[in-house]
Design a binder for these strands. Structure first.
Lengths: 180, 180
DNA sequence: TCTGAAATTTTACATCA
DNA sequence: TGATGTAAAATTTCAGA
């Protein structure tokens, strides 16, 4: 069976000079912290008292651990997840973008351009045949075509892009496995 | 300029017999609701009193609107967003999967299989060259290769899959534009 | 919409390892 | 020193009128 990758992602990060373990406050997470994260990733309105009962800690202990993880950046945000279809954005698209030049300046410019668009929920800079993968939500196809004109056709550095229309959002979330 | 799509996504949904406006409690959102959603999508720990000041409503009014949107399914969840790299999952991958047979039964089976995997953060069923797009987070490339063996090579209906390694998570979120 | 009660979050402090 | 639990205070949430 052929290997799927030329090299590991870890190798790639190092080659590109991107420090994976970049300057973030170091923090050790024990099994209590992980158990708390598992709960908060499902429902962050769970009372600290209830979390405490689940993990065998007092509410203040839970509170201190949560604050510590927020300050350390382990918890990046606390957000409400909204159904896009219910607020006028029923169409989800996956877009692969290939650029012409991969100079640092041009890549950074593309990153900023893509990230600045509200309809772009997610943007990944990737290896392989594509350079960027975007997840986009729009009200109509007309709105998407307008977006493509502005973002892709209006960008001299975009070689081509390929759009995949999501017929079904099977699973949508940012949950990270922690209990393993 | 060549048209990007054979037909609009709306058309596609209808052709496939999927009712876009499926049986969810109907709800009308006014500009207050949308303003509240904009805040909650950024930080759902914002006190109702503060939200009220921002949108010119009393705290109880804000609370009633939030509850109404939660019950109607407009707000799908309230979650903590965790940095995958900080909990041992530093590698993000985008995977395109093409299946052999698109019978309803086999597609449903694939949906269930993919969605059941904790490392699969997101799974979209899409049109175009690929049938599924997955967003996966893993601790190591070895873990991913194990996952591919189980999920793709171990599935007779998977024709091929293509992996894009994320070098940078430029923008990661589920935020939907509401203020437009 | 306002007011008050209930619940939650947060702080203070004593204790233990 | 660092983390915990108990108790009290501050704040928020929530139900009534």
């Amino acid at each position: 069976m052929r290997s799927i990758f030329a090299g590991s992602a870890q190798e790639f990060f190092i080659r590109k000079g991107v420090d994976v373990s970049r300057s973030l406050p170091s923090i050790t997470l024990d099994r209590y912290d992980l158990a708390i994260l598992a709960i908060l990733q499902r429902n962050n309105t769970t009372p600290q008292r209830v979390i405490g009962e689940a993990v065998n800690l007092s509410a203040p202990a839970v509170q201190r651990r949560i604050r510590r993880m927020e300050e350390a950046g382990v918890i990046e945000a606390n957000v409400a997840v909204v159904d896009p279809a219910r607020v006028g954005h029923p169409i989800t698209l996956i877009v692969e973008v290939e650029v012409i030049s991969e100079t640092a300046a041009l890549i950074d410019a593309a990153k900023r351009d893509f990230a600045a668009v509200p309809e772009v929920q997610q943007c990944y800079y990737v290896t392989g045949e594509a350079d960027f993968v975007l997840v986009v939500v729009v009200p109509t196809m007309a709105a998407y075509e307008a977006l493509t004109r502005r973002l892709f056709f209006g960008n001299n550095n975009v070689k081509r892009f390929r759009t995949l229309v999501a017929m079904d959002r099977i699973k949508v979330g940012l949950t990270v496995p922690v209990s393993d």
